[in-house]
Design a protein around this nucleic acid. Structure first.
Length: 750
RNA sequence: UGGGGUAUGGCCAAGCGGUAAGGCAUCAGUUUUUGGUACUGACAUUCGGGGGUUCGAAUCCCUCUACCCCAUCCA
């Protein structure tokens, strides 16, 4: 919250709070319990619970269980679990829309009594036809004429289960020709003879989302109903229901944000289900899944998910976040938390020919830059394993690890040099005979040998075998469409990795950094002491010099911005006549004349203003810009000022009494209060200052205060002229004559 | 096609008429017994395109373009 920049939702909340619209912020997280929650839900949870927390309000957890055929209690458990895992507490009990069924039913009857809802008995197909299309108005069903009594009776029979599914529905009577398709008499209730996982068989009718959601919000006293963008069109119904019922006290309002998209994965319930059912993954909690359960089993921490949600922000633009940002969040979190241990993924035997006996080496769990304590003992003997990738017989340039010519440090232990490479028949390296440098022991190294790298290793007899599951992105394409896009290497299992004994015996944690490999998590389900299994959460970041292989992405071909001309609707003859008059007689420029001529309201306003004061260009400008802006929100008769007042305002500008900058300010004021422009200028003392004797000292002061910028300006950063002008204008409270200020500033700086 | 939205670097994203924040990614360099971390520096003369208004426009006006959502008895 200390962040100066807040997202648009928090800004709305703050405005509402400041305006006294609500005493308390109440939000809700309202999933339908028909699937497992994924990271997109996490974003919604973070927003809803986060906002409630930030403004000392509360957030409800509500199961939006209005469709008995898709929902189930296992999902409500998963949802509750997700919220708790992320560290949030919902207010009081979990709420269920189904708990409000009786109230909802009463509200529906209310609507019927008001003549605002009716029982429709047309078939599904016919209803679709009657609804019209996006360009054609729909037609109302003949059943809309039923009497209130008949509707009430029918609705009650629907409720009692006297009709079959689909025989009747309850619809709102709104507008069958509404441009917003959602408003063409939306369905409020449908008949469903189905068992509801909570309500049982009590109801034969179930409310639709559009009817249930707004009222559930209302019933719970929600202040800010936050949902995703695809519900924008539903907002009209949301408001219609609440307004029509005349519900007063705490009225909720809906606000929408963009749902989360992440590349190299899919997020829709349908696609996720396909993966599970198609056996492409091992269930909803497969560590490759973007589900909460999957992320959790992979080893992601709640903190990392929350940090991720925080870092991506909240806005209204559809976007696709890079997985790298998620990966950063978990690395960043684990870096300071987790012990480092040594694990050899692909063991290569190293025999140290000049070492005899054995010893134990004490090694810290955390690197110098992590302020945590703890050490463990590393057994050491002449027979150890290192990773195959840490030895190269024909190293590329820039290879830091062991080669026949290059010694390497065994981390926490000795420096070794390769003496002999043993290969099998096929030429694969199977063992290395090496010699160690006795005086190179970690901590008391007097050998003077310089190595480029320190590698992980394990002692061969005491090392433990573990299974390691290496996970990679589920899909190989950024925006996957189908199973074709699956990454065939998303799971690699290594059955015989070797790990230092302390990890298994001491169990210092469940998450580790396997040094130089990545972060790993003891699989919460399959791990046993006999068969330890670790999931790779995420790899360490690799600098390009180590990766080597990935050829740098080629410079993007500059997608030159070209202008695409569309077709412009031609003017009518009347408009053309006006346009000609404006350009020829009044000398307006063609753009201004064009907008004026094409807008009847605007041109009428303009002509009237022109009669009061003859300043055709100036008035045209203010009308086409500022008045036009207001006319986008309001009707002509709602404006707080008259054309004549606009003309007067313009006159003051023409007379150089005020600057155009001040004129804008006065305009705002007029728009708000409807006061005379001359009065506003007078009472606020807005007459512009053009006297250099007054302005110059101010300029000098500003210049004195900003020596760095003066220097930058003199060094050629001419943009800064605007900065100085702005500062001076601010010092004069906007009253400085900008033209004069500009000139003087330029002179003083030059 | 009617309506509702959205466009700021490779990816997110601030910005609300006066010097284009920040994070991720990328690239350099310093430190490092992790090719990790940390630190330093470089990354938008320009905000989807074109016009207009203004001393001054990412911000106001006009216009064009692209993308997303809406015609489930789903939510």
């Amino acid at each position: 919250m200390e962040n100066k920049s807040k997202d648009f939702l928090r800004r709305i909340v703050e405005e509402d709070l400041n305006a006294g619209k609500y005493n308390e912020v109440v939000t809700r997280f309202p999933p339908e319990p028909n699937g497992f929650p994924h990271i997109g839900h996490a974003k919604s949870i973070a927003i809803n619970f986060g906002i409630a927390k930030d403004y000392q309000g509360h957030c409800n957890l509500r199961m939006d269980d209005t469709n008995p055929t898709t929902e189930d209690t296992q999902y409500v458990e998963a949802l509750k679990d997700a919220v708790q895992w992320l560290g949030f507490e919902w207010d009081k009990n979990v709420r269920y829309t189904s708990d409000y069924f009786p109230k909802l039913y009463a509200y529906a009857r209310e609507l019927i009594k008001m003549g605002k809802a009716y029982v429709d008995s047309t078939s599904e197909e016919e209803m679709r036809e009657l609804r019209g299309t996006v360009t054609e108005a729909g037609k109302r069903s003949k059943y809309a004429e039923r009497s209130v009594e008949e509707n009430l009776e029918l609705f009650e029979k629907m409720k009692k289960g006297e009709f079959k599914d689909g025989e009747h529905v309850l619809r709102a009577k709104i507008d069958m020709s509404a441009p917003n398709m959602k408003m063409r008499d939306p369905l409020l209730y449908r008949i469903r003879h189905a068992h509801h996982f909570r309500a049982g068989d009590e109801w034969a009718i179930y409310p639709m989302y559009d009817f249930a959601h707004c009222l559930s919000d209302y019933i719970e006293g929600v202040s800010h109903s936050i949902c995703t963008l695809e519900f924008e069109n539903n907002r009209d119904i949301y408001n219609w229901v609440l307004d029509t019922l005349g519900l007063k006290p705490i009225r909720p309002y809906q606000h929408e944000f963009a749902r989360l998209g992440i590349n190299y994965t899919v997020m829709s319930k349908r696609k996720l289900l396909e993966l599970v059912e198609g056996g492409q993954v091992n269930g909803w909690d497969d560590p490759r899944m973007p589900t909460i359960a999957g992320l959790r089993r992979r080893g992601y921490t709640p903190e990392s998910i929350l940090n991720f949600c925080d870092s991506i922000g909240v806005a209204k633009a559809n976007s696709m976040v890079d997985v790298a940002q998620l990966e950063f969040a978990i690395r960043d979190d684990l870096n300071t938390k987790v012990p480092r241990v040594m694990c050899v993924m692909n063991p290569l035997k190293v025999t140290i020919t000049n070492y005899e006996g054995s010893e134990e080496i004490e090694a810290p769990y955390y690197p110098h830059d992590v302020p945590k304590e703890g050490t463990r003992k590393l057994p050491f003997s002449k027979e150890i394993y290192i990773d195959q990738s840490d030895f190269s017989q024909n190293p590329e340039k820039g290879y830091f690890r062991l080669t026949p010519e290059q010694p390497v440090r065994l981390k926490y232990a000795y420096i070794i040099s390769c003496k002999e490479v043993i290969k099998d028949d096929k030429g694969n390296v199977v063992e290395i005979k090496a010699e160690y440098h006795p005086d190179s022991k970690s901590g008391k190294d007097t050998s003077g040998i310089k190595v480029k790298s320190a590698i992980q290793w394990v002692e061969s007899n005491i090392a433990k075998q573990i299974e390691v599951r290496l996970y990679d992105r589920l899909f190989k394409t950024e925006a996957p469409e189908s199973v074709e896009d699956l990454n065939p290497n998303s799971l690699k299992i290594i059955k015989d990795a070797l790990i230092e004994p302390a990890v298994i015996d001491e169990k210092p944690d469940v998450r580790f950094q396997f040094e130089r490999e990545g972060y790993f998590y003891a699989d919460p389900i399959d791990y046993t002491d006999e068969k330890p299994i670790f999931n790779k959460i995420v790899g360490l970041k690799e600098s390009s010099s180590k990766k080597k292989k990935a050829p740098k992405q080629t410079a993007k071909p500059q997608p030159k911005k070209v202008q695409i001309d569309g077709e412009v609707v031609p003017m009518t003859t009347e408009e053309q006549a006006l346009f000609d008059n404006y350009t020829n007689n009044l000398k307006l420029n063609s753009e201004v004349a064009n907008t004026l001529a094409r807008d009847a309201q605007l041109s009428a306003f303009y002509q009237e203003a022109l009669e009061a004061v003859n300043s055709p260009v100036g008035i045209a400008n203010i009308v086409t810009n500022d008045v036009a802006r207001e006319l986008k929100q309001k009707e002509l008769n709602e404006l707080n000022y008259t054309p004549k007042q606009i003309a007067e305002l313009m006159k003051m500008v023409d007379d150089e009494l005020i600057s155009t900058k001040i004129a804008k300010q006065v305009f705002e004021e007029m728009s708000k209060s409807g006061e005379e422009p001359t009065k506003i200028v007078e009472s606020k003392g807005l007459v512009q200052i053009s006297d250099p004797d007054i302005i110059l000292p101010i300029i000098d002061e500003v210049i004195a205060k900003n020596p760095e910028n003066v220097e930058k300006f003199r060094a050629g950063n001419t943009k800064l002229l605007g900065f100085f002008v702005g500062q001076v204008l601010k010092a004069t409270k906007g009253k400085g004559n900008p033209k004069v200020v500009n000139e003087l500033v330029a002179r003083q700086l030059g």
